[in-house]
Structure formats: C-alpha cells, structure tokens
C-alpha cells in the first residue's frame, strides 16, 4: 500500500541528525593517540555524511521515500513500555534483581492489558508473573551462575 511519494520530512530530519552524529565522531577522532584508530571511524563518518546529505538533496528535489507509513495504535502505551523497562533496569543496582523485576512485570501486564479483568485473570496472571520471574531468577543465578544484582538497599 505504498501511497504516492510523500515529502518524508521525518526522513530528512533523521538524515540531518545523522550528519550531526558523523561530525561528532570526526571531532572525537581528533583526540586519538594512534592514527590507526582514526582511519575507520573517519571514513565511515564520511560515508554517513555523504549518504545523508544525498538523501536531503533528494528530499529537497521532492523525491523523498517515506518509511512504512503512519503508525496506528497507542503512543502512551509504547512510551510507558520503554519507560518502565528503562526505569526498572536503572533501579536494579539499588533494589536488586527481584525487587525490580516483579514491579516491572506487573506494570507491563497492566500496560499490555486489552481484555477485561475477569476473576480468573486477576488471580492467575500475577501467579504466572511471579512464577516466570522466580523461575528465571533461579535458572540464571543457580544454574547459569550469573551474578544478578542483589541490591544495595536490602543487601541480602
């Protein structure tokens, strides 16, 4: 369902940002002691600038190529998903793995819930969530010997 070529201003904006990123890379590469370290980043920063600039030119000529199209669905839920995951991860060193994982799981269940809450769901979903979190905790910590964060606050 690709519609007729749209202007794709978003694509041009991303291209402009990428040019900025490339400039940042070149600036960083000035500080390297070893010239071998600089060759590769500078080369591909150049490629990035050329490709992005070419796209902007194309866009200015009215020949932009839009992405997969307008998105549908709930933006708040999307933002919440990423926010909850990030928040839980950042809190992990303080509140420990279990302390972060259980609330994250519960919060994400709420964010992803579209069906009505029946009594069965209210009872069973939390149990499954706890089972998954504890099961994986056990698998990772005891079997795979992964030192999961324990949390400075509780210091268990």
């Amino acid at each position: 369902m690709p519609t007729e070529p749209r202007s794709d201003t978003g694509g041009a904006v991303v291209s402009a940002i990428l040019i900025g990123v490339a400039c940042l890379v070149i600036w960083d590469s000035m500080s390297y002691m070893d010239k071998d370290s600089a060759v590769f980043p500078r080369t591909f920063a150049g490629v990035l600038i050329v490709a992005s600039a070419a796209y902007i030119v194309k866009w200015l000529l009215g020949r932009g190529e839009a992405g997969p199209g307008a998105d549908t669905g709930s933006l708040p839920r999307r933002v919440l998903l990423v926010g909850i995951m990030l928040g839980g991860t950042m809190a992990m060193p303080w509140i420990g793995f279990i302390g972060a994982a259980l609330p994250v799981f519960a919060a994400l269940t709420l964010v992803a819930m579209y069906d009505p809450w029946t009594r069965f769901r209210v009872l069973v979903y939390p149990l499954i969530g706890i089972a998954i979190v504890l099961g994986f905790f056990y698998l990772f910590r005891e079997v795979l010997q992964v030192p999961l964060p324990t949390g400075d606050l509780f210091d268990s």
């Binding site: 499954i128 089972a131 998954i132 099961g135 079997v143």
Partner: peptide, 25 residues
C-alpha cells in the same frame, strides 16, 4: 480460554524442567 489454561500449565511444566537442570549444581 481453554488454550490459555493449557499453555499456562505447559509454561509451568517448562519452568519445572528448567529448574530441574539446576538441581545437580
């Protein structure tokens, strides 16, 4: 709903299996 319950039981079984691997260690 039936399939849901079934898959939930299966999930439990899988976790039990995974946990079983660890008993040796």
């Amino acid at each position: 709903m039936k399939t849901t319950r079934r898959s939930l039981v299966l999930t439990g079984a899988a976790l039990a299996f995974v946990a079983g691997i660890g008993l040796t260690a």
